[in-house]
Design a protein around this nucleic acid. Structure first.
Length: 592
DNA sequence: GCCGTTTTCGGCCCGACTGTTTTCAGTCG
């Protein structure tokens, strides 16, 4: 049984207990579900190796759940799950994915109308049957129908590359609304996650109603879910939700803190606050009078301790401020408490791009156009890495074509960097290629030609469904070639479209260390490959990486930003990324 | 059911908005 399956069962348990109004267990099972989901190792092999004790080391798993898992592994039964499923034989995962439908409603839907899945629900809503249920009138009925429609249209997480430009454009218009003092993008977009579930805007305004009104009427908005004086929730035409929160100026830092971290990060930080006798919410860090007891909320005797900036809030909690990209509760809180956060590679640290395609193959622009744009972006170098021959559909280059391209690059370098004359440009185009790793691990360009190139990237573009062993061996064999400097997009995934091929990434990282091969962080927002977790593994293994764009046109050269964000989420520091080095030092890190 | 700088009991993150009903539970982020 895979971790994903186990994690799903635990998450479903959380909902089932919530339906039963059991206290505290839902949170406990959710945490266990997250703990399993975030585990590198297979839970089942943990159990085989270390038994119950091993299971209990998984975050969120204690004796109780460990015993359940043991039973699951030994005879395939999770007794409590079976019992609850018998009572509520419904498709919980899909029903709860409908906006506005939660555990309590799922329970009512089943008990009163025997609704088990989305299609039952849709029929009942369309026929008016739903109104037999207390608390459901016309508005709820409409909300449910809309939610189903959205789900059917494939609503979900969107690639960051599609959203960051949109969010920035919206932000710049929001900034101009009268009374607005500050606008910031928070949430998963500020963390620069690979995919974004919704957009979060924070505002400080002297006139909250006006900014809320403006926001709800922006041309990007297709539907307004909720609009109050300090909060607006909308759906965008893009197909995802966006919300705006308006806050007092004094609270802006606290709000940014509150709305930037992942849920897990925030829960942990708030627990630290409680331990230290504080209360933390989006308005600030407060020295609290007794706030226990849900009914009586003490509003007196709470004094504001920190709120103006994020740094202030973290500092009062005894922590350094983790960069937004790290706020996922993956060890950054502990590091921040110990003042041992890594100094992440910065957005301005890269000196050059190392994967670009031109109109010699499937790129849109000429070498010269790409080079000029790279110069404009402030790069010192740019490798041209067109596809090689076995990728026939792209007009991949053979040895002869590569040699011709090399001499073209020589000419351009002379033009950009004349030996005599006053021009001080230090820019250099590097001769490169993205060679194909063939099924058996050999390359589709001969070694003699490869040796003439400045930088060689090798990549898998075929036979994606080899067995794990064969796929891994194939790539490792290519890494053994003394001409291969970099493995491009090491797992081959395309976000939301193609799963990574089955490959033992630990073995690849080991082989990279052994052979001195560099691993790429492909910054193209469709790829972002290596993933953040793999970057962290590579860094810990002491393997060097590069960040580049895989640009196929001049405007894609700006994708470095996404690659850097990815590296930062993988805790990479400047020294882990060799294209932070000036050209001479960079070239020394390559094999030849 | 989990967890421990209030360690084997007694806590468990916190607030805004909605719908439907008159005081709040449910859902969401």
């Amino acid at each position: 049984m895979t971790n994903e399956e186990i994690s799903k069962i635990l998450a479903e348990m959380a909902v089932l207990y919530e339906m039963e109004s059991v206290e505290f267990k839902p949170r406990a099972y959710e945490r266990a579900s997250d703990g399993v989901a975030g585990l590198q190792e297979e839970v089942e092999s943990v159990y085989k190796k270390d038994g119950i004790k091993g299971l209990m080391k998984i975050p969120g798993v204690g004796r109780g759940i460990a015993e359940h898992l043991k039973q699951l592994f030994s005879d395939g039964h999770f007794k409590e799950y079976d019992r609850l499923k018998k009572k509520f034989p419904v498709d919980i995962a899909s029903l709860s994915s409908i906006e506005g439908v939660g555990p309590k409603m799922i329970k009512l839907l089943y008990n009163q109308l025997k609704i088990k899945n989305i299609s039952d629900l849709e029929k009942a809503a369309a026929s008016g049957e739903l109104r037999a249920i207390p608390h459901i009138r016309e508005k709820m009925e409409q909300k449910i129908l809309k939610g189903i429609e959205y789900k059917k249209s494939g609503g979900g997480r969107v690639e960051i590359g599609k959203l960051l430009p949109l969010a920035r454009a919206m932000k710049s218009r929001l900034e101009k609304v009268k009374g607005v003092e500050a606008i910031e993008i928070a949430g998963s977009l500020r963390r620069r996650q690979e995919t974004i579930g919704d957009l979060d805007f924070l505002a400080v305004s002297e006139n909250p109603e006006m900014i809320c009104e403006f926001f709800s009427k922006m041309p990007e908005v297709s539907h307004v879910f909720a609009k109050g004086p300090t909060k607006v929730l909308v759906r965008l035409k893009q197909g995802l939700d966006a919300d705006l929160r308006v806050l007092p100026k004094v609270s802006f830092g606290a709000a940014l803190q509150y709305f930037t971290g992942s849920k897990d990060h925030n829960v942990e930080v708030r627990k630290i606050a409680i331990k230290k006798g504080y209360k933390l919410n989006e308005y600030g860090l407060f020295k609290s009078a007794d706030t226990r007891g849900k009914k009586r909320r003490t509003t007196q005797k709470e004094t504001l301790v920190a709120a103006h900036t994020e740094e202030e809030v973290y500092k009062k909690l005894g922590m350094d401020t983790p960069p937004p990209e790290m706020r996922l509760n993956r060890g950054e809180i502990e590091a921040a408490l110990k003042h041992r956060l890594p100094k992440l590679v910065g957005y301005g640290d890269l000196k050059g791009d190392l994967q670009t395609q031109t109109d010699w193959t499937d790129g849109a622009n000429s070498i010269s156009e790409m080079a000029e744009e790279a110069m404009r972006l402030g790069h010192e170098y740019m490798a041209v890495t067109d596809h090689t021959r076995s990728l026939a559909m792209t007009g991949g280059a053979d040895e002869k074509k590569l040699l011709r391209q090399m001499s073209e690059i020589d000419k351009l370098n002379l033009k950009f960097n004349p030996r005599s004359g006053g021009q001080k440009s230090k820019f250099k185009i590097l001769k490169g290629a993205e060679v194909n790793i063939l099924k058996d691990g050999s390359l589709d360009i001969d070694d003699k030609t490869l040796a003439k190139l400045d930088v060689v990237g090798a990549a898998v573009h075929s036979f994606f469904n080899l067995s794990r062993e064969d796929q891994t061996a194939r790539i490792i064999k290519a890494m053994g070639n003394r001409n291969v400097d970099i493995i491009f997009h090491p797992t081959g995934r395309i976000i939301n479209r193609r799963k990574p091929y089955d490959v033992d990434i630990e073995a690849i990282i080991k082989a990279a260390k052994r052979t001195g091969t560099i691993l790429e962080i492909d910054g193209h927002p469709w790829r972002l490959d290596l993933s953040d977790e793999h970057i962290r593994m590579a860094k810990e293994a002491g393997v060097k990486m590069v960040i580049d764009t895989d640009a196929h046109s001049v405007h894609e050269l700006s994708y470095l930003e996404y690659g850097i964000a990815q590296a930062r989420r993988g805790w990479a520091e400047k020294s882990d990324i060799i294209n932070t080095l000036p050209l001479g030092d960079f070239l020394k890190c390559l094999k030849k």
